[in-house]
Design a protein around this nucleic acid. Structure first.
Lengths: 196, 196
DNA sequence: CAAAAAACATACTAATCAGTATGTTTGCAA
DNA sequence: TTGCAAACATACTGATTAGTATGTTTTTTG
């Protein structure tokens, strides 16, 4: 990676952390350049404006982390339902206090920005689409392989799973990690009802 | 209501709407006084600072609306599970596009403010406590009356229901009202598993 | 090696921010 | 009716905001 690309990546990763912890609108460009020790000239050389940087955070930090940390692990199991549950359980139980307190990066931005900025809306929708489609495809594969009931709508179920995940990550910001346990138990009960 | 109390209420209701649509940090005091046509002197006569107004919005606008619009209706049925489901269904299906797009007022603030401001955290936690406890008490009553399984933890179930609700309201901001339908169907399935 | 472009640095701007200082008006009690 | 506090009004402040103008340095390329 060239030096310029490194600078860009450095900005995006530090800015991601600041946005994750404090929100997008509360993270000023001045604070970012102070944290990164990158000058304003360099910042605006790499990004046309603050919003373009925000979109780049979603595309280049959040989406790859989601893929690597949650979506790819889902595909490791022969049984789709085990794969989905296993990936969620592993992700959620390994969450450090820092991640419990700050919730889900995607969800935070959805709540803060989707109704306010259409470009954020579009980009966040793409992230959720990727997420939901991954689960949907797993379930449909399971249907073909006779592991998942064929009378369920894979898309509906995928949306329900994602919304439950985001819901508990949100509640976890208030009540802490302990709520993850009962969530996982209820999720298991729910997923069992999908089996053939 | 005296004239001063009316001014205060007017500020809180307009500010609530602005915060609901644009977020707390994006809603400036200057914008609020422009929208309400209340002068800055009047604003700071009624509220020590912006955060105190934010807390007043939660206590005096959000909490009463939640109680009246969701928690009280839950108690109308003889059957607790029917009461819980009926209140959620009525609330969610009657949501105007405006409420679909902007999600749940409580959840929006939880995601934006709970990790950032401890006073917001405490106050929002009280709102969630009220909500969860209402459901919990309904379920415990159902257990006494032989309508709900006694081997389930009413608190865990209440947390799961609230987090699912907030999750779908969050997803609804992206995908629109159509996701509410499948959510309600899945919720019904889940609630049935709680019956004695 | 020289020219040109890429990558960065510094100093500024106008707008907006939360909050304050210092008034004036209004309602009500004595 | 007068006095006084509650309720509001106006004009300001210093800090912070996103963004720009105008440089200099570094890297690449012919």
């Amino acid at each position: 990676m060239g030096k310029a690309a490194q600078t860009r990546k450095h900005i995006l990763e530090e800015a991601f952390n600041m946005v994750y912890q404090n929100g997008y609108q509360a993270t000023s460009v001045d604070k970012i350049i102070e944290q990164t020790q990158v000058t304003k000239g360099a910042f605006y050389y790499h990004f046309k404006n603050k919003d373009e940087m925000g979109i780049a955070i979603i595309r280049e930090v959040i989406l790859p982390r989601l893929s690597q940390g949650l979506l790819e692990p889902m595909k490791f199991s022969d049984d789709p339902i085990d794969g989905i549950y296993g990936a969620i359980e592993a992700k959620i139980l390994n969450d450090e206090p820092y991640y419990v307190e700050n919730g889900c990066p995607t969800n935070n931005l959805v709540q803060e920005m989707s109704a306010v900025n259409s470009k954020f809306y579009q980009t966040l929708r793409q992230v959720l689409d990727t997420w939901i489609q991954t689960i949907q495809q797993s379930l449909e594969l399971g249907q073909q392989q006779g592991q998942v009931r064929t009378d369920i709508d894979a898309r509906d179920v995928a949306e329900f799973i994602v919304s439950g995940y985001e819901g508990i990550k949100g509640i976890g910001k208030i009540y802490g990690k302990k709520v993850y346990r009962s969530y996982l138990a209820q999720l298991q009960v729910y997923l069992r009802t999908l089996r053939e």
